[in-house]
Write a protein that binds this DNA or RNA. Structure first.
Length: 151
DNA sequence: GCCAACGTTGGC
DNA sequence: GCCAACGTTGGC
């Protein structure tokens, strides 16, 4: 079992949207970064747990937990000419982009802010802290437990 | 809205 | 395959 952190802009899609989705499940699509794609395609597995992270908003930080309920499959949006995620170089034989399905597990009573995460010396090596711009990233078991202790 | 820190593209 | 130019992410 692996741990992950997925970023989202709540104005576009928030953890509340996920909670209110049918069966509290949604397709996590639109990932168009190769490093993030490789994690999604090769490492993210059914049953893995995910910290949901809100970026570009007032309350930046981890807002809750979701579970992977379906491992990687080709992101249909890459074939949809009307989608902003359309990719003319993608073919059905060789899909470029992948998505997974996630299900809401819990929303924290308050946001675990980026500021608090950064202030925690044990979390200094988190990808979230060290490398700003990765929307799908692995979280170690130690990091996961450290953050859960901050709720 | 600014801008630093990346990632991607494309000419050579 | 280098690298300049450009685009995007995301905190502030």
């Amino acid at each position: 079992m692996n741990y992950w952190l997925f970023k989202t802009e709540p104005d576009e899609y928030s953890i509340r949207d996920l909670q209110l989705a049918p069966n509290q499940t949604a397709k996590w699509d639109g990932i168009r970064n190769y490093q993030a794609r490789n994690f999604l395609r090769d490492k993210v597995a059914e049953g893995d747990l995910v910290f949901m992270y809100h970026s570009q908003c007032k309350q930046i930080g981890i807002v809750g937990v979701a579970e992977i309920v379906r491992a990687a499959y080709p992101d249909p949006a890459q074939y949809d000419e009307t989608s902003k995620y359309f990719d003319p170089k993608a073919t059905f034989d060789t899909p470029r982009w992948f998505c997974v399905d996630i299900k809401h597990k819990l929303t924290y009573p308050r946001v675990i802010s980026l500021g608090r995460i950064k202030a925690q010396s044990e979390l200094a090596n988190m990808i979230l802290v060290k490398q700003g711009r990765l929307s799908v990233q692995p979280v170690t078991e130690q990091e996961w437990q450290q953050i859960e202790a901050m709720i």
